[in-house]
Write a protein that binds this DNA or RNA. Structure first.
Lengths: 342, 342
DNA sequence: CTGAAAGCGCTTACAG
DNA sequence: CTGAAAGCGCTTACAG
């Protein structure tokens, strides 16, 4: 049988209340008493039963998730996953609120963070757009005991913060490894469609991609990125223009959102032209279709459901002062071809 | 506030004990009383607090994991993950025992299953080698209230059982999609190294692989499988012989264990020969190295840690009569290239 | 067939 | 600075 607070109290010759005070590092205990209790804890190998503690506390974990609004399919999928997890976690004394903010807008994000009622808030998970105001807002939350997790896109370190998302440089390198092989030794150029070079994850993906192509596929040339602003219309138009202007394009790396426009531009090409190898990001419905019909060769994905569950687990672990299981919380760079789409 | 058993008891005009009886479907309650309680439950929207219930029950989940013994790296990795999860889950009133049985041996597996003391056993997770004796043993366990989960390799359905592992036909198809593209339009033959064609997952992988190559890469010919028996020495020797005997091999799909031998055979080829594109299974240390130095182009993997945690979650959910979250418990067919290795 | 009381392992006022 | 008692939401003997 595992030792309980009763065993510790008896061994230390104190009451349950005092054991509890020491366990929770509450003030007002003589240092000598603290020591007696800690010795007993160590000797017995006592470990607190978190479930029982939460029951006694009637603890409710209150978390806020902050995500960008707008048509971005990935973000909407993320939001759905948060809602789903929110429904399920009500059974586990966890209350999750979603707050939407304009995308790419540090000021709005900071305002949302500063508007949070911190009294009974345990943690915040946010898709971060970095800016000094955002960092200040996060520092403030942290000082008030709110745990913080960044989601999908990271920013400069805030104390005790944790990032839940993929390594975007490695994602770009991976895309290059696939595309380089897929073009099959043909020489030519590769087009790049990004959302915005003002967003950190897109920049990192491009950097990783370029580095590998330059080092390992000397026959391939990477064009400057087309900025689609995560908008299908814009992305489609830019790509169409580029495809019309040159006939040496053998591959395409679509880094950001707006895949619908990209897909349409590719499908409109004459069927007699040689295949352009394509690697894109995020397994949305459009991307699935494009994989199925051969328009996309591969899609790099991050599992939004996993990210949300991971963010919740990490926030809870931090609130409870428990360790985070790194292996479980690492978000994989997933690769999907037509046949391993789940 | 969520309603509790007290609220239900009051609403139904019965005691806590009776509410508990109805909640847990214990016998010896008048059907009229049952109905009164159930009406109250429905009306209040009562949902049981599983954590509190487990505390009251001093419930300990006791699970047995049955895995094949032997040098197979994947299985040893799986065993490590079970040990790890076992350590962590002691904090959550979960006791996990590992039982090792000879591989590919239905009789031994059945004997191990029949030897299980079912009195305080809540669930079993097993890497299944199917045979009538095994199925009978599982049916017996199930009749005694032991929940069952198959791991990595499935067998014919046992009532209420659940499979935690990848879709192996899709894995083979995925391998073909990669290899077909990687050989880059060259015509030639593809070698196949399997563990044993007597094991269901290997057969399924080969089937999926062949189907895609036949349909989409008419220039490629797949050789009959070399059976390496999951043994590096045997696999290496067979592959070496084949490579020596013919010069038209452009690709290799390594379906089973024994990758060390495969890697050595490939590395021993003269550097002047053209590259053989290679897709293998399971991201073991040897496979990581082979990816890093370019001997392997891609590795298809199933996450053993995820599988173990998933098996535990599923077993607990079944014991508690809770629903399984399918999206969370689906094991992905992971693809690793050099740059997305975690 | 049903209920009152004690208990699971903690925490929380309240009193001293 | 410390302790006795009640309570979190359930379950479990025991009694009737």
């Amino acid at each position: 049988m595992r030792p309980t607070v009763h065993d510790v109290a008896e061994a230390a010759g104190v009451s349950l209340a005092t054991v509890d005070r020491v366990l929770n590092r509450r003030a007002g205990v003589r240092s000598e008493t603290i020591e007696r209790v800690e010795t007993a804890i160590a000797r017995l190998g006592y470990v607190r039963d978190v479930a029982a503690a939460n029951l006694a506390k009637s603890r409710v974990y209150r978390f806020a998730f902050i995500v960008p609004e707008g048509p971005n399919s990935f973000m909407r999928g993320l939001e759905r996953e948060i809602e789903l997890s929110g429904l399920r976690s009500r059974l586990e004394r966890t209350d999750i609120r979603i707050i939407k903010v304009p995308p790419f807008d540090g000021a709005a994000l900071a305002a949302a963070l500063n508007g949070l009622e911190t009294a009974d808030l345990s943690g915040v998970a946010l898709v971060a757009a970095g800016s000094p105001a955002v960092i200040a807002a996060l520092e403030r939350l942290h000082r008030r005991g709110v745990e913080i997790v960044t989601l999908v896109s990271d920013i400069e370190v805030v104390s005790r913060s944790h990032y839940v998302g993929i390594d975007n440089v490695a994602a770009g390198r991976t895309a290059a490894g696939l595309l380089g092989r897929f073009v099959g030794g043909r020489a030519g150029t590769i087009a790049l469609v990004v959302g915005s070079m003002a967003v950190r994850d897109h920049v990192e993906r491009c950097d990783g991609f370029r580095a590998v192509i330059a080092a390992e596929y000397p026959g391939l040339d990477v064009l400057p990125p087309l900025e689609g602003r995560d908008d299908a219309r814009t992305a489609g138009r830019l790509l169409r223009d580029t495809l019309a202007a040159r006939d040496d394009i053998v591959g395409l790396y679509s880094v950001g959102a707006g895949n619908r426009g990209v897909i349409e531009a590719l499908r409109d090409r004459s069927a007699s032209l040689p295949h352009i190898a394509v690697v894109a990001h995020e397994l949305t419905d459009h991307a699935r279709q494009a994989l199925a019909d051969g328009t996309f060769d591969a899609v790099i994905n991050q599992d939004a459901g996993h990210e949300v569950r991971s963010a919740i687990r990490v926030l809870k672990a931090k609130v409870d002062g428990l360790p985070v299981i790194d292996a479980q919380e690492t978000i994989r760079i997933e690769i999907y071809l037509r046949d391993n789409v789940p």
